[in-house]
Simulated assay, not measured.
Amino acid sequence: MLLSNDVLVRNNVKLIGKGEKTLFLAHGFGCDQNMWRFLTPKLLSQFTLVLFDYVGSGGSDISQYNKKRYSELEGYAEDIIEIAEVLQLSNAIFVGHSVSSIIGAIAATEKPKLFSKLIMICPSPCFLNFPPEYLGGFEREDLLELLSLMDKNYIGWADYLAPLVIGNGNSTDLIGELTGSFCSTDPVIAKNFAEATFLSDYRYILKDIKQPSLIFQSKNDALAATTVGEFIHSQIKNSQLEVVLADGHCLHMTHPNKIVDLIIEYANNDHDT
């Protein structure tokens, strides 16, 4: 069992801001807590923010990486629960990007008192197609090919995926940053996380979410079509869907001004709980 301080070091946890309400910010695959920097200046004036890195990402303690634990999203959810318990959080508001939306949902259903609301930025519970009832966007063979590319040409894989994730017409600097972030992650760890992200199916968990949830969806997202956001909205009983006229899978980086005020409004609206 890790001691409390070890948990905070393991996940490079940082607390900023002094607001009464706490926002727990969880970055997506191949990223780190620095990706929230476009939202934090406005958020920290009103909230206490919890920033962290998943093990294997950013400034986390890579020596704590356990391939078996992190072969499923539940392992990452366990980290979130441990961080929240060490910080003695209750009724915090979880903000997750992409796969972290689902990791947060796992944590929130397992320990419902930790989080009072969920805010999901470009979420997907399943990237696979199961026609006709669900289209996650990808055939299994295509995803296996993409994962295979990680072994054969990791730099090529990063160069291919980053523009898809950031989206057409968005900053080439952000594409370069994301490529660099992918490339700075240990390839073995990245592939394990990628398999847990892209080959899993967590559609079943959505109906178990009791917390009010705000879902942000890009109008044009190569990784998650608007039908995915609509599906999540249909499954979470108390949810709100905001489709943003934007390209890409990283609204918090490419269109922070379009979503930050909605995040603040939703977090402060006590009628939603």
Rank of each mutant, 00 (worst) to 15 (best):
F24M: 02
L51G: 04
I102T: 12
G56N: 08
G28F: 05
V95Q: 06
G28H: 05
S100A: 05
A105E: 06
Q64T: 12
R69E: 13
V99D: 14
I83V: 01
V95L: 07
R37E: 15
Y54E: 15
A26H: 15
A92K: 07
S60M: 10
S100Q: 00
D79S: 02
T48H: 04
F47H: 03
F38W: 14
I83Y: 02
N91C: 10
G96L: 01
F52D: 07
A77H: 01
V99F: 14
G75P: 09
T40I: 00
L43N: 07
L25R: 04
L89R: 07
I80A: 15
V50S: 05
Q33D: 12
S101T: 07
F94A: 00
F94C: 06
M35W: 09
I103A: 08
E82R: 14
V95E: 07
G96V: 01
E78C: 12
Y76L: 09
S63E: 13
P41H: 06
G30M: 00
G30F: 01
F29C: 14
E82P: 12
A84H: 01
Y54N: 13
Y54G: 05
G28A: 06
I102G: 11
Y76Q: 03
L39A: 00
S57L: 13
L25Y: 05
L43R: 03
K42Y: 10
